[in-house]
Amino acid sequence: MKGKLILENGNVFEGKIFGELGDTVGEIVFNTGMTGYQELLTDPSYCGQIVVMTYPMIGNYGINLEDMESDRSYLKGFIIKEDAKLPNNFRCEMTLDGFLRQNNIVAFKGVDTRQLVKIIREEGAMKAIITAEDLTEKELSEKFNNFNNSKAVTKVSTKEIYEIKGSGKKIGVMDFGIKRNILRNFQKRNCNLIVFPWDTKAEEILKYDLDGLFLSNGPGDPTDLNNVIFEIKKIVGKLPIAGICLGQQLIALALGGSTAKLKYGHRGCNHPVKDLERNRIYITSQNHGYVVDKVPDSMKVTHINLNDNSIEGLKSDKLHIMSVQYHPEGCPGPEDNNYLFDDFLKLFEYKF
């Protein structure tokens, strides 16, 4: 079906709508990965976003249920240059188009994604609309103004506490939109996991006699989660705490730091990060639009992004807290960054 992609800055692109045939509005961002589109499509951190893939052909190895990072897709839209009509892989269970239809995701193709990415890099992430209709200026303005992603975490978090049994460390997990592979990495290390909804009170978490608390990745602006930051403050000094992505940002805010929105974010599986403590460079998987820009007095920087020198890791030896901004479970190396989960477990050995 013919359609249009309309950017908030007024740029209009013509192409074809596929997947769910309808309209959608969201924040347009881009991902630089050549592979991993299924993991991207099912990563809850993309909730509320329309994702542009920089790699020109997407869908060539299809979709399989084993590599899902959550039960469904939370994207508002998906934009590619060209889709592979005949995926070829022994693990393939469905086509990209079939998956998009099943998850009600509006997708757009036949557009020059290189030009789109250049616009986003120059002007920053912005709102966008995919539509088959000829909308008036008033209708466009209403659609843009009505879009709000401040409640994204509430949509992707678990609704109730659940346990994943193991014989090792007993770890509490605050679920802000956690990827399954994070849980799998803790399971590989025999951890006993208690997974909590995003708004669980500190008093409830502390009842479980945990060895440590892990704060997950998730979508949106961390400053929207003031109630979560308040609960984290109450746990600091009572349990060792580790975090990934949004988890790092919330830790920094709880300890007196601050966060800022990046112009166009870091999204992809090819971002170089330097581990300052090990003096090694790792290729990392990333998905974030916000970063810590002011380090709390009680923490030190442990990792930096070599593309823009942004903060990619923090640590407090005194408070027994550590975090990273990127995704060690993302496996771009494929397993170069798994050592961080072992570091988390060493952190959780401390008893207050």
Rank of each mutant, 00 (worst) to 15 (best):
Met1Gly: 12
Gly3Ser: 03
Leu5Ser: 07
Ile6Cys: 08
Phe13Met: 11
Phe18Pro: 06
Glu20Cys: 11
Leu21Thr: 13
Glu27Asn: 10
Phe30Pro: 05
Asn31Gly: 03
Met34Glu: 15
Thr35Pro: 00
Glu39Gly: 12
Gly48Tyr: 06
Gln49Met: 15
Gln49Ile: 05
Val51Met: 11
Val52Phe: 09
Pro56Ile: 02
Ile58Ala: 10
Ile63Cys: 07
Ile63Tyr: 13
Glu69Phe: 00
Phe78Asp: 08
Ile79Phe: 02
Glu82Ile: 10
Asp83Trp: 12
Pro87Cys: 10
Gln102Cys: 06
Asn104Arg: 15
Gly110Met: 08
Gly110Phe: 11
Gln115Phe: 08
Val117His: 01
Arg121Cys: 12
Gly124Ser: 05
Gly124Thr: 11
Ile129Met: 03
Ile130Ala: 04
Asp134Arg: 11
Glu137Cys: 00
Glu137Gln: 12
Lys138Pro: 00
Leu140Lys: 15
Ser150Arg: 13
Ala152Phe: 15
Glu160Tyr: 07
Glu163Leu: 02
Asp175Val: 06
Arg180Asp: 05
Leu183Ser: 07
Arg184Asn: 14
Lys188Ile: 05
Lys188His: 11
Arg189Leu: 11
Val195Pro: 01
Lys201Gln: 13
Glu203Asn: 11
Tyr208Pro: 00
Asp209Val: 00
Leu215Pro: 01
Thr223Asp: 11
Leu225Ile: 00
Lys238Ile: 03
Ala242Arg: 04
Ile244Ser: 04
Gly247Leu: 04
Leu253Glu: 02
Gly257Trp: 02
Lys261Cys: 00
Leu262Gly: 05
Gly265Pro: 08
Leu276Val: 08
Glu277Val: 09
Asn279Thr: 02
Ile281Trp: 05
Ile283Ser: 13
Val291Tyr: 14
Asp297Asn: 15
His303Ile: 01
Asn305Gly: 09
Ile311Met: 08
Gly313Ile: 02
Leu319His: 02
Gly330Cys: 07
Pro332Ala: 04
Asn338Tyr: 13
Phe341Ala: 07
Asp342Val: 05
Lys346Phe: 00
Glu349Phe: 00
Lys351Thr: 14
